[in-house]
Design a protein around this nucleic acid. Structure first.
Length: 520
RNA sequence: GCCCCCAUCGUCUAGUGGCCCAGGACGGGGCCCUCUCAAGGCCCAAACAGCGGUUCGAGUCCGCUUGGGGGCACCA
């Protein structure tokens, strides 16, 4: 079954669904696909990329196919140092392990486009020889001028065709003479182009609306339109999953492929993610606001914030893909259920509240050992030296209180502190005076100190009895003790916490609280 | 401006002509549980953008309108 490289634990949510046997059988009916996630290293890995990669992964595993990572680094101006590594780290963190890629190699490499330039040059030349493309010697300055002119005249900005009619023999001479040039695709000027996107059906363009797109730049590197098509052909990609920003250049791509006589892959263009308001896509400003809010659209930020791969994956998989019920899923369960027929083409607004929900849900689904291992680094990052024994004991106590792994600090940090320093005001129970609160603390100390051991089981009954006899509210008595022992007003359950902290420290902390209250 | 895409509760979505006075999830409201905070259980409010067709029958098919989105580079 899918997810053969998955790091994810095998667990099933409470709402687990049972996969019918006939569905299992149908897995083998789907021919194995070859899909690629092809990001460009021009910035940080965000949610949109992560979802595209996820769907690629799901389709590959679902069909026992191949998932490839390819780096589209042909834009040297926008290249960002470290971006490729962040992409790789992000995929590994999410558990979307690929079968072929720049760092692990594979039979159809290299997997970085800058290492494949000869291949593109070869196919660009073929396009020119066959009359499907031409050398263009226009300067960027002239083109810019033409564009402005066209806009002024309310015309559509497009290439004006100047070099289209230069005879090939003359063009070759100018190229040989070292004249700077690009290679443009010779788009048909009449008729229409039709192509099929599995999510939307057939789309039709009038060829007269299409432009003579640049395929090979003057630096000898290809544009996306040539590079991606060539690599998809050379790497025998069967299904192209990409963002809907490619829809507008879709006709260029199919025309290039058809001119070269290559087989056409199955296409699907994923909708964009909109900002939480649903008005427009995420901008730099919204990204900054999200971070202020404890959220982020960047994958590796989410990791640092304490989100889990399970939570993030579950969240983004449902933005653009719907399941009838049981929407809590592990990666392996997504593989079992995934189908490209259920993809939704409409844009989806990002909803961080839902991420919080899925993250908390997956945290609650983890075994104690698993969760302890996940929160340990967060305690260490916060400066605590972590005692494994205590860690294992506190984990079940804080599990259902966590939204992010980082929430472990406020809920469990005090377990690793030698002392606590409660605020005096917090030690005073609701409707009680400092003196009365001190009395409650003294009586509690008296009860607790008489116990041979201090455990949840031994401490709760006598304390409950005291509450009963005193006529006080449970939360008045337990509240004072909670603040005395944990140093905070909100904590995991009191008696379980005291058991972990230990008799000696508990008594000491209650004594300190009494002193503090008496000094008021 | 031009081209293309999209349109079910606030949000993510199920729905492939009768099973839908539209189902699930998040969020919201209420109740229960309760030593705080949570978690959990039960319940409630909340949508087929509008208008025309097609059909015995339309959320589901077609057209228009409106709204939203993407793109119009020697960027991906």
């Amino acid at each position: 079954m899918g997810g053969k490289n998955s790091h994810h634990p095998q667990y099933f949510p409470l709402s687990t669904f049972h996969l019918p046997l006939f569905l299992e059988a149908s897995l083998s009916d789907l021919p194995p696909v070859r899909v690629r996630f092809a990001p460009s290293p021009t910035g940080r890995m965000h949610l949109g990329s992560a979802r595209t990669a996820l769907y690629c992964y799901l389709l590959a595993r679902r069909t026992a196919g191949t998932f490839i990572l390819r780096i589209e680094d042909t834009d040297r101006k926008r290249y960002v140092e470290g971006a490729e590594q962040e992409l790789i780290d992000g995929l590994h963190w999410l558990g979307l392990n690929y079968d072929e890629g720049p760092d692990i190699g594979g039979p159809s490499g290299p997997y970085r486009q800058t290492e494949r330039r000869a291949i593109y040059q070869k196919w660009a030349d073929k396009l020119v020889e066959d009359g499907h493309a031409f050398h263009c010697f226009c300067t960027a300055e002239r083109l810019e001028q033409v564009r402005q002119e066209q806009q002024k005249n309310k015309q559509n900005p497009r290439y004006d065709g100047t070099c289209r009619s230069i005879p090939l023999s003359e063009a070759k001479k100018r190229v040989a003479a070292g004249e700077k040039h690009v290679i443009r695709f010779k788009m048909p000027t009449e008729g229409e182009t039709r192509a099929v996107d599995v999510m939307r059906g057939e789309i039709t363009w009038q060829n007269k609306d299409l432009d003579d797109t640049v395929l090979l730049k003057s630096d000898g590197l290809p544009t996306y339109h040539l590079a991606a098509m060539t690599d998809d052909y050379e790497m025998r990609i069967t299904h192209v999953i990409r963002g809907s920003e490619w829809l507008s250049t879709f006709p260029v791509h199919v025309n290039v492929i058809r001119a070269l006589g290559w087989p056409e892959p199955t296409w699907m263009h994923l909708s964009v993610f909109l900002k939480p308001s649903g008005k427009g896509k995420m901008s730099k400003r919204e990204a900054a606001d999200a971070i202020k809010d404890g959220h982020s659209i960047f994958v590796m930020d989410l990791k640092d914030l304490g989100y889990t791969p399970e939570g993030v994956l579950n969240w983004i998989v449902l933005m653009g893909w719907g399941v009838a019920e049981d929407d809590v899923m592990t990666l392996d369960q997504m593989v079992e259920r995934f189908s490209i027929n259920n993809l939704n083409p409409s844009p989806a607004a990002i909803n961080f509240t839902k991420l919080d929900h899925f993250n908390g849900t997956h945290i609650r689904l983890m075994s104690t050992e698993e969760l302890a291992g996940r929160i340990k680094p967060f305690f260490e990052r916060a400066g605590y030296s972590v005692d494994e024994g205590i860690l294992l004991k506190l984990t079940p106590l804080i599990r259902e209180r966590l939204v992010t792994l980082d929430d472990s600090i406020p809920f469990g940090g005090f377990f690793f502190q030698p002392t606590v320093s409660p605020a005096a005001a917090d030690l005073i129970a609701k409707d009680l005076t400092p003196a009365q609160s001190a009395e409650v603390a003294r009586r509690s100390l008296d009860i607790l100190s008489k116990l041979p051991d201090l455990s949840h089981a031994s401490a709760e009954p006598p304390m409950r009895q005291y509450v009963e006899e005193s006529g006080l509210q449970p939360n008045q008595v337990f509240g004072i003790l909670r603040v005395a022992v944990t140093g905070q007003k909100v904590s995991p359950p009191l008696f379980e916490s005291m058991e972990i902290i230990g008799r000696e420290k508990v008594l000491e902390r209650v004594q300190n609280a009494i002193k503090l209250l008496e000094s008021l």
